[in-house]
Design a protein around this nucleic acid. Structure first.
Length: 304
RNA sequence: GGUGCCAUAGCUCAGUUGGUAGAGCAACGGACUGAAAAUCCGUGUGUCCCUAGUUCGAUUCUUGGUGGCACCA
């Protein structure tokens, strides 16, 4: 079987980046990141950017879809998918092999399932009309359209309004649909047993706090980002902000952030299990395997 | 050493006028196509510290332990 791409996924703190970069090294490839937070510039330690991992045997492995937007800017799965295609086609045109690597389930699936997404500009007038309605009324409108259904669109007014905006735009422009290219990817997952996964997360969190993660978040606040902007990013940015503005003690911050990352890793695994139920064949690698053995397995599966 | 209070889920605790128990957090499972590290939904996992009594029946009342806390010496 001939593959167009290698995908490496897994929950946080499993060494995906290092494995992805190493595979790119062996395959004459380049890495496409599938991480919804590494998109933002200046958010490095807190998102685990680990840029040093992209140097393999003194060779700099090119990476894409990292540092694509300012912290605080709006970004979403549509932007991601569009920028993915650009980078993917660029890599192919240069005869390099794409390695798609990350842990954001939605972004992985947008590419692997080929979500049909079209550009929908915001409609200021319509937004103003809709904003006077209650969430219940908005949900009612959404239900009537329901061509694309996302239950989390009915959780807050802003989401519901954006969802209606998209539905109404698609009704007016049904011809704008485009086909996302079908990519035949080998999908490899990296995971550890539950206890190890949790231990690794806790150890890494301690390390990052020592490495200056608090200062990074403080710098973002000082540069003008609001606490609301930052808490919205979740995890490190949320809990460190709460600590820096005095709402949590250092101990509370550590404990609650640690728990939140553990819960996040669990949700990632839930997403990957669902992908498998949906028919994706994920070939799992035990995280404890030495890097060379992981490389050997993947090389064999790729038929190289 | 004396007196008082406490001992119930992984943690913090509520409760049962005696009929073997329930909240929050954690944990676990799930949803999720335009904020996705977000957002949301579901599940109780238990020698009610031990012992001996009273009782048809004790986690609950009584005796004696054990451990913890406080105060007095």
């Amino acid at each position: 079987m001939q593959y167009d791409m290698l995908t490496i996924l897994g929950p946080t703190a499993t060494g995906k980046t290092q494995l992805g970069a190493t595979m790119a090294y062996h395959l004459n490839g380049e890495v496409l990141s599938a991480d919804s937070r590494q998109i933002y510039r200046g958010m490095d330690l807190g998102t685990g950017k680990d840029l040093a991992d992209y140097v393999v045997n003194d060779l700099k492995i090119p990476y894409h879809l990292i540092d694509m937007a300012e912290a605080g800017a709006q970004y979403n799965v549509f932007e991601f998918q569009r920028q993915f295609i650009q980078a993917y086609e660029d890599i192919q045109s240069r005869g390099k092999f794409p390695v798609f690597c990350g842990g954001s389930g939605l972004y992985l699936e947008a590419v692997l399932k080929g979500y049909k997404l079209t550009q929908v500009p915001s409609n200021k007038e319509r937004r103003e009309e809709l904003s006077s309605l209650s969430l219940e009324e908005l949900s009612g409108i959404l239900k009537a359209y329901k061509t694309v259904h996302n239950s989390s669109d009915t959780e807050t007014k802003n989401r519901a309004i954006r969802a209606i905006e998209i539905e109404e735009h698609l009704l007016l422009h049904p011809d704008m649909d485009f086909e996302f290219p079908k990519i035949n990817s080998l999908i490899v997952g990296v995971k550890f047993d539950r206890n190890t996964r949790r231990e690794r997360i806790t150890t890494r969190l301690k390390q990052r706090l020592e490495d200056g993660m608090i200062e990074e978040v403080k710098g973002l606040l000082d540069s003008g980002l609001t606490p609301e902007d930052l808490t919205y990013y979740g995890l490190e940015y949320k809990y460190l902000t709460l600590y820096l503005i005095g709402e949590l003690s250092r101990e509370e911050m550590f404990e609650r952030l640690n728990i939140a990352i553990h819960q996040f890793a669990k949700r990632q695994m839930t997403w990957f299990r669902k992908m498998e139920r949906d028919g994706f064949d994920i070939k799992w690698l035990d995280g404890f395997l030495p890097l060379e053995e992981k490389v050997a397995f993947i090389t064999k599966w790729l038929g190289k």
